[in-house]
Design a protein around this nucleic acid. Structure first.
Lengths: 154, 154
DNA sequence: TGTATCTATGTCGTTTACGATATAAACTTG
DNA sequence: CAAGTTTATATCGTAAACGACATAGATACA
């Protein structure tokens, strides 16, 4: 084996890492208008879609661990967008609900996906390409997250 | 416009964000054996390919800013893998060179790409798919990084 | 030549990620 | 029912990312 595989341009992880960061950066001007970071926006999207869920469900939907989600939720709570209430059925669980302000933010956020798609179109990236890519990436997520749960069992 | 676009599963950025994190996690067992984090591994790959370059070139190859690269290089330097010398030609620039230990680490790192590919193959991801994806992602990087340099000019 | 601008690097503060560890509640099983 | 285990959440420490700002050297150009 040559060491050409150690070259940056032959890596597969590096392009993912770069695109992820560059897209997050592209979101920034839109998100800073509504006062959210990208991970905070993800949490809010989860809650706009299903209000009143447990932290555990948020964590699983975002493939994040509690040590990332806990402080993230605390910051969002301190912004007055959510409330955290301990569940009655299971005293270990915490239920997260949207405040009035949190619900209202959805209106401000609603144009963002469209604006992002326009920006990508402007860079020559088509809706078809995005759609194909989404399917491919979802397969990767499935493959990689199964693998990481194997690790947990181990 | 419906708000279905605000749903997580219809986002394009979220899969990138997740896959990027999940792949980095998949690298971890291999990288921790040689004592590197993923960003440190990226820097080392750049240097194994072109030793003695300026920080500016590292920064551009990785699409990172100095405020990320500077502390990263300091940590790698404190591990004894690189040296930082101020350039004679341009006193503003810093040249980064590999130490003996840094060069030797390349041997330990060389099996990693192959091992990662095997791991992905085990999850049903083919070499062809990876190759296609790499081309697609490189286009995205081109599109998105041009865009962000536009922002700098603005 | 002097002054304004640009460039390369660095520091500081905040937010993410995430490994290691802690804690309390729920579950399991002898 | 008691002891061990699992589960849900949280805290702590470290390393990235990155915006804002600082600084010294190089460059431009009046």
């Amino acid at each position: 084996m040559t060491d050409s595989q150690l070259k940056l341009k032959n890596q597969i992880c590096f392009p993912f890492y770069s695109v992820s960061r560059l897209i997050t950066k592209a979101y920034k001007p839109f998100l800073s208008k509504i006062g959210l970071t990208y991970p905070q926006y993800l949490v809010m999207m989860v809650l706009w879609e299903s209000d009143g869920i447990r932290i555990n469900e948020i964590k699983e939907k975002l493939f994040l661990d509690t040590n990332t989600v806990s402080p993230l939720l605390k910051r969002i709570e301190s912004m007055g967008l959510i409330n955290r209430i301990r569940s009655n059925e299971d005293e270990r669980s915490v239920i997260v609900t949207l405040t009035k302000k949190g619900k209202e933010l959805k209106e401000l956020a609603s144009p963002i996906p469209e604006q992002m798609l326009e920006g990508l179109a402007h860079e020559g990236i088509t809706v078809e390409e995005i759609s194909n890519l989404r399917n491919t990436l979802n397969n990767w997520i499935k493959a990689l997250s199964e693998n990481s749960s194997d690790n947990k069992i181990k």
